[in-house]
Design a protein around this nucleic acid. Structure first.
Length: 709
RNA sequence: CGUGAUGUAGCUUAAAGGAAAAGCACAAGCCUCAUAAGCUUGAGGAUAGUGGUUCGACUCCAUUCAUCACGUCCA
């Protein structure tokens, strides 16, 4: 105790990659979050001051477009997604200290501050570039929103960066018949001014950050080096250095969902500039809300504390190049470690929607038989500290969980707890003989090894050691045959007490050792399966286990009755998962189909068009609606009937301008109850909104009620 | 096409130039305390192919094949 208090206590800030607000969490995402959570839980058990911070990555074109397609504001969408993400994380027992959003005041302030510091350091430059532009949607197009025919092999429907079929690499401008996936329009090349961060000047800074990157991968294996990156990542970075660092385009033109850039017109910060700043923002909010930590202590350039980012290998580029460069040049501290993990494959292949293996977190959680901690366990059993891809083989998953968690681990308690209650009133021995405690000593001896494996994120190794111990415990029980002794006792009944006492003690001791072995295994597994561990703590009638307690034994202590702890998985549960997931996926693709159908990009059939009953309408009355900001109440004459319609055109028209005019309305639109009354249709108007709304006007002669076709 | 990574038993991984290991799955036997759990034994391998360096290669080099990732402003 005194030794550790003298040492300066290490404080760690840990982050997981921020999930993007344009999608649900799936099993692939969970690899990173479960890895981080497991690691953080170990830190907490060790008593290390460690904060686990995350949040939603909310900005960018995809979010903007999706919000539009759903007919909601971007804010509504990201709010909904954030809650959905949080629910999924909660389901898998991922426990953040704080979970924020990049669309927050804290983040805006920090981004602007960083930007201004970079600008002051003369690291921001304005340049004119040419970009593809969608003339119909009036917006610049990211590459991924352009498709066309491959210039080489003429395969249709290829993305702007390269052909999936012949693997030719090209730019979107090379595509034959390019079209915008948003509007279908042919993109045109348009000049625009963008802001660049001069990353090309940061090579020394970055190499310095990487520190002595000459060490080889093999040297790193047993000892955590001082380098912030694993060997594979260093290779990748070297590649990037070799091809030369290019300046980084950090601005995007309106329309864009993001933070406006100060002193610029219609320019926004690119989502990847503000995303990692979200780590800071989330932590800042956490500090302000809880007062548990001091933001500056952790983020100032001379911070003594550790900053670790857990990320997937797909975003190494941002975290290993831009992020340290930006931080360093803006006079903040840089990350100490980037822990990079690989992708998840399912049954050896990429997750696939058609095979039903693109499995959402929600689908898994919806199958009650699939304990979320089984997945945590499986990931832990497979995760090493390399950035290799990991595979979840669904058959292997079932076998492994059943065999390791149910057959080996839980079984140890299950097969001995009964005796403790039947014969010893639920109480463990007062003390153990040397012979009996020797098994437990081997457990205790392995604690340091296990801790180190966890620390170095070699969870697979940690699990291997733990399961070896579980095997030892089961061997011990088989060897000692407590059931034989128990029979002897019942046969002897109240015969001769001396023999009987001896046997009773022996049996008591065997069961006490087993329960203690079980307790230690639980302690070792707790970072991986925290909720199961909690149940065990209740069963053992003990306080929450921390790592220190591995050296003590549980003696002379009353435990509770053993209750069923974990259930086996059956193949049918996996089939169910695939099925549930497939259904959910179909729904998603259908709604997204519907969304594109309603957008102006796709065509509809004549039948679809014929469903819409368009009529000439005479506006016989128009009036303001009390309490409504945008609505006017219109009374429309369409020949034989009059309809009442609430139209969102107040910003562009005064009621008196409208009365008496002829326009076109959708007459068969389902009536909709609104706050101010029932609206029985829609009038047609053009324009983006605000003052720019123009309702349709008809030439002389059209009579109310005429069908428009 | 280029660059990088990976390829070991049915599955998941070890072996850092010195006898190819372990767990799960499989087979046989034992056991019955436990959720058909547990224990013992066994079978299972041209280490993707070819060529080279070496007394000796899963390991180092070259090359081929397969899979994956990345490839000038999507990052």
């Amino acid at each position: 105790m005194s030794e550790s208090t003298n040492k300066q206590k290490e404080k760690i800030l840990v982050t997981s990659a921020l999930p993007y607000a344009n999608g649900s969490i799936h099993l692939g995402h969970l690899v990173g979050y479960i890895q981080t959570d497991t690691w953080v839980r170990l830190q907490r058990m060790l008593g290390t001051e460690c904060y686990f911070i995350c949040g939603d990555d909310a900005h960018g074109t995809p979010v903007m477009l999706r919000a539009e397609a759903e007919g909601v504001t971007a804010e509504t969408l990201i709010d909904k997604m954030r809650h959905q993400h949080l629910e999924d994380f909660k389901g898998f027992n991922i426990k953040f200290d704080y979970y924020h959003s990049t669309h927050s005041d804290e983040n805006r302030e920090l981004v602007i501050e960083i930007y201004q510091r970079l600008k002051k350091a003369d690291l921001i430059e304005k340049r004119s570039i040419e970009q593809l532009y969608d003339p119909k949607r009036k917006m610049f197009l990211p590459d991924r929103f352009i498709k066309g025919d491959c210039p080489k092999c003429h395969e249709p429907d290829q993305y702007g960066d390269g052909c999936e079929k012949c693997h030719t690499i090209y730019t979107p401008m090379d595509l034959i018949n390019p079209f915008s996936t948003i509007s279908g329009a042919t993109p045109i090349i348009k000049k625009t001014e963008h802001l660049f961060f001069k990353l090309s000047t940061c090579e020394d800074t970055l190499k310095n950050w990487m520190q002595g990157n000459l060490g080889t991968f093999k040297q790193e294996k047993n000892k955590e080096s001082k380098q912030p990156l694993q060997g594979e990542s260093i290779n990748k970075l070297d590649e990037w250095f070799e091809s030369g660092l290019r300046d980084w385009d950090i601005s995007r033109d309106a329309p864009y969902f993001g933070f406006p850039i100060p002193d610029e017109k219609d320019k926004f910060f690119y989502v990847w500039l503000d995303a990692p700043v979200g780590y800071m923002a989330s932590f800042k909010k956490f500090c302000e809300l809880t007062g548990k930590a001091n933001f500056d202590d952790f983020w100032n350039a001379d911070s003594p504390h550790k900053l670790y980012h857990f990320i997937g290998k797909d975003i190494l580029y941002f975290h290993a190049l831009f992020w340290p460069a930006v931080l360093s040049k803006a006079n903040y501290r840089t990350p100490d470690k980037l822990f990079v993990h690989g992708f998840l494959t399912i049954n050896g292949r990429k997750m696939s929607k058609s095979r039903g293996t693109f499995i959402n977190a929600r689908a898994y959680l919806d199958i009650k038989a699939l304990n979320p901690e089984y997945l945590r366990y499986y990931y832990a059993a497979k995760l090493g500290n390399k950035s290799e891809d990991i595979d979840i083989n669904l058959k292997d998953f079932v076998f492994r969980v059943n065999s390791n968690l149910v057959g080996k681990y839980a079984n140890i308690a299950s097969r001995t707890a009964g005796f403790i209650h039947k014969l010893f009133a639920g109480k463990l021995c007062r003390s153990l003989s040397n012979e009996a405690s020797s098994l437990l000593q081997t457990f205790i001896d392995e604690a340091k090894t296990i801790e180190n494996f966890y620390q170095q994120r070699q969870f697979n190794e940690a699990i291997r050691v733990i399961m070896n111990l579980a095997d030892k415990a089961n061997e011990y029980i088989s060897d000692k045959k407590p059931w034989d002794i128990s029979k002897k006792i019942s046969l002897q009944a109240d015969d001769n007490n001396q023999e009987d006492d001896k046997d009773r003690n022996k049996l008591h001791e065997i069961c006490t050792v087993s329960i203690n072995a079980f307790r230690l295994l639980t302690l070792f597994l707790k970072p991986v399966i925290p909720v199961i561990a909690e149940k065990v703590e209740k069963f053992l009638n003990i306080e929450s286990l921390d790592w220190q307690q591995h050296s003590a034994l549980l003696l002379n202590h009353k435990i509770n009755k053993y209750k069923h702890l974990v259930s086996r998985i059956e193949d049918k549960h996996i089939d169910e998962l695939i099925e549930v997931n497939r259904k959910a996926m179909n729904e998603i693709t259908e709604t997204s189909k519907k969304q594109t159908e309603t957008s102006d990009a796709t065509t509809i059939s004549f039948e679809d068009f014929a469903k819409i009953d368009l009529r000439v309408a005479k506006i016989i009355n128009a009036e303001h609606v009390e309490g409504a900001d945008k609505l006017l109440k219109l009374t429309l004459d369409i020949g034989d009937v009059q309809k009442q319609v609430f139209a969102g055109i107040k910003s562009a028209y005064q009621p008196e301008q409208l009365i008496g005019r002829h326009t076109v309305m959708v007459a068969n639109l389902a009536p909709r109850k609104m706050r101010f009354g029932v609206s029985e249709g829609m009038v047609l108007a053009a324009g983006p909104g605000g003052k720019d709304i123009w309702i349709l006007q008809l030439d002389e002669g059209a009579k109310p009620g005429m069908k428009v076709q």
